[in-house]
Design a protein around this nucleic acid. Sequence first.
DNA 1: CGCGCCTCCTGTGTGC
DNA 2: TGCACACAGGAGGCGC
Length: 284
Amino acid sequence: MPELPEVEVVRRGLDQWVTGRTVATVDVLHPRAVRRHLAGAADFSAALTGRTITAACRRGKYLWLPLDSGDAVLAHLGMSGQLLVQPAETPDETHLRIRVTFRDGGSELRFVDQRTFGGLSYEIDGAQLPAPISHIARDPMDKEFDDAAFVAAVRRRKTALKRALLDQSLVSGIGNIYADEALWRAKLHGLRPTETMRRPELARLLTAVRGVLGDALGAGGTSFDSLYVNVNGESGFFDRSLDVYGRRDQPCHRCGTPIRRDPFMNRSSYTCPHCQPRPRRART
DNA sequence: CGCGCCTCCTGTGTGC
DNA sequence: TGCACACAGGAGGCGC
């Protein structure tokens, strides 16, 4: 659920509030929150204790905190995860999973997650790029993102265009919300077979993706859902700017045609049937 | 090997 | 009022 803009908002908060601080204690309150750390919760806590956080990095929807040891703490928010920087006296959140305290005695870092799809792990030698996310592509806002390579890769695929947008090994940071928003801006339908995409259409799509991600980041992220918050627990307000997502039966902001919702990949796709006509040869 | 379906999880909203 | 169920969905894993 949190996509690139929301995760980047969190990264900036972490960079501001936890970089340079040394870990005093680590309490894992729910084992599922460290299930990707195969050595277990006790090992996670022991490994992190005493380490100093040297930065806050992001690739796609993943965050990691490089450590003075050359290792890193890797985090994924899943659908409902939050990384909060809270004063120690703040009451525990209902779904508090992990608490990290620091030697300076200041604010705590808390991992809160209602639906427990997210989690943290300790990655040895992960400071540069943790091994479990080496397959994640750069995001389209990254200076090193290769437009031509992306266009070529999409055209080699045999899948639906929206599936390609959601494939984090092709382009990262895009989830269901911004995929629909970008397709609407580019006037493309998500069921277009990728091998039929023309290069200018994909260039237009990349422009649309960058536009919607940039706008959302400027607004501090989307939050029609109170689960998306920065490290201070505050929501963004990009939901006011959404053009199609969640707007079933409401008029298209370009042409007034009612937006339609269709099932897609066990979730939803929102399109304007006039601006984004369904392709004759749709690929599901 | 590429593609696509399934599953993990819990709180909220809706209809009967 | 209460119950049942749909829905939200990122991404690893697995089957075809």
